[in-house]
Design a protein around this nucleic acid. Structure first.
Lengths: 227, 227
DNA sequence: GCCGGCTTGTGAACGCATGCACGAGCGGAA
DNA sequence: TTCCGCTCGTGCATGCGTTCACAAGCCGGC
């Protein structure tokens, strides 16, 4: 039952699609025009059946006995992820992290140009981060409206994070990437994803500790690690 | 069957423990000495039964009809996560991200002091990032050995990431937090966790796109978001 | 000392994700 | 044209994680 632009893709699959996309792009850059699920699985460090099942949610784009045409598959994955156009983002907080994010080329190159960065501190407003000027948090509404921004990034301290989120929501942002170690309270119409750098370290140190001391040991896994 | 310092905690639970720990610490700071699974669940934005099951892996530390003593529970979670001592980390790559991580106070305050930051670029070696000096990548072995470092952070470009990982492994690091958008190839004795900022944005834009266009819509969820 | 209310700890059911195994179907060779 | 090898797409079984629901058990009041 080919479902062409199939609805309802499992979240676990959605989380892997960007990784496939990255690998496919590398593959194309290497001049390879066709790839099998086995090869792609190797590159991604996952099971081949999983790759095929993931891709089958997008539609029936593989050819039996041959594999997938890289360029076409890239097109389809990009379309599914909504990457047929850019998604400008606005960053709240021009501290250490905000500056790094604003200067990180990986965003622009992957389709997420920084439409603006704002801070509450008047001393920071007006300073330049690369080719972007830090603007006042009062201008958030303007930035969002004029730049058609729907994604906001919270890169403030934990204390200011909720306030930042409120301002983003008020400005009309509907998706938020939160780097502050707090749970944001937002309307149900807004999607939030949280990245807590310290949590990642805590998970690592848990397994690190486990490895040293106890009888039996085991290994961690989440988003990849080839042998 | 109380398993005191119970072995074999599910990975999903391990990933939530740091969040509970953070909330518990906040709760204690607010002068509250006792908390129920219901309250903790509200704070974490998860189901109460999940909280109880998660905590039950640590041992039987709750009191029926009463709840959990915050201070004691903090102690137990910290012990389980291996946070009864610091875990110094070494950062490879003094670019945008490396600088931000080195300057981010959240690491030190949560038990992960930065033992050193190294870069391959001679022009960067010797410069100061806050109170930390950028050192040569050749000194990685010294830093790891003298600082009892077991966790390394890869904050380089994608191209240099594998090389950075190899050097970290050679230096004796056994856990790596990878911010570069590549799959690292390491010995099976080394644990890797990967954080790809662009992937997080891609997941957001997928749901963002979904919301706008199609017949029915749905919502994302992963690490929290209260209504 | 006993009773009622409250909260934990956990057995059991459900649902999602993973991985296997195989039929379906394409391309190329003879 | 026919046959063979290869790879996709997917039904099915397994395992993990989440949630429900309830008995066990503690505390405070009477």
């Amino acid at each position: 039952m080919a479902m062409s632009s199939g609805r309802r893709i499992p979240e676990a699959t959605v989380a892997r699609l960007p990784e496939y996309l990255r690998l496919l792009t590398e593959t194309l850059d290497a001049g390879i025009s066709n790839v099998s699920s086995d090869e792609l699985a190797d590159m991604a460090g996952v099971n081949a059946a999983k790759v095929r099942k993931d891709l089958s949610y997008l539609g029936t784009y593989g050819v039996r006995g041959v594999g997938y045409e890289v360029e076409y598959l890239i097109y389809q994955v990009r379309r599914e992820l909504g990457l047929d156009h850019d998604w400008p983002v606005v960053i709240v907080g021009a501290g250490n992290l905000g500056q790094a994010l604003a200067g990180y080329g990986g965003f622009r190159s992957r389709g997420y140009p920084v439409a603006g960065i704002v801070d509450i501190d008047p001393a920071k407003v007006g300073t330049m981060l690369g080719d972007i000027e830090v603007r006042s948090v009062d201008e958030l509404g303007d930035i969002v409206a004029s730049g058609a921004v729907s994604i906001g990034v919270v890169a403030t301290s934990a204390i200011s994070a909720q306030d930042a989120a409120d301002k983003l929501v008020a400005a009309g942002v509907t998706s938020i990437l939160n780097f502050a170690p707090v749970l944001l309270n937002v309307p149900p119409t807004v999607t939030v994803r949280k990245v807590d750098l310290a949590v990642e370290l805590q998970i690592l140190s848990y397994y690190e500790q486990r490895r040293a001391e106890p009888p039996a040991s085991h290994h961690a896994r989440r988003s990849g690690t080839a042998s």
